[in-house]
Amino acid sequence: MRYAMAIDTKRCVGCADCVVACQRENNVPEGFCRDWIVEETTGTFPELQLEIRSERCNHCADAPCVRCCPTEASHYEEGGVVLVDHDSCIGCKACIASCPYDARFVHPEGYVDKCTFCIHRVREGKQPACVEVCPTHAMIFGDLDDKNSEISKALRTRKYKTLIPEAGTDPHVFYLL
């Protein structure tokens, strides 16, 4: 099993519903977010292109945050989901410094927090909160090892990219182009 997310930049309108949904679902404290929206414009007027992305932790397969964690608080869960065990985290922030995507932050309660791929929902057979709410159906979550999953199909049929692959982390959030 290998969980991953694909975000369709053609569908996404950058409404940030995924951000609010995450905040509500996961009780993300004020002043923090686990996901966010980036708009990238290329070209000059009037020859323009706009790419809109909903970004979050990439649940890297070769995650520096896991590697540099001294307590194993940051670890891989089923399906390659990268999680932080709150009761093992000492708050040394090594993982924050090590994440090239700046996906992590210190929760006001002291431990480090970030996107969990909503594993608590996934385990109940539901979709992550952000995926479920997206009005344009821009997000796909699923198992890459299942060749028939929607995400496997999307990655077979569509062009896609990952963010800063040169950072060498093997990210598992894909952007459909």
Partner: peptide, 11 residues
Amino acid sequence: EVAITSGRMNH
């Protein structure tokens, strides 16, 4: 041009 439009400003 890159813009972060959801106001990400994690403390």
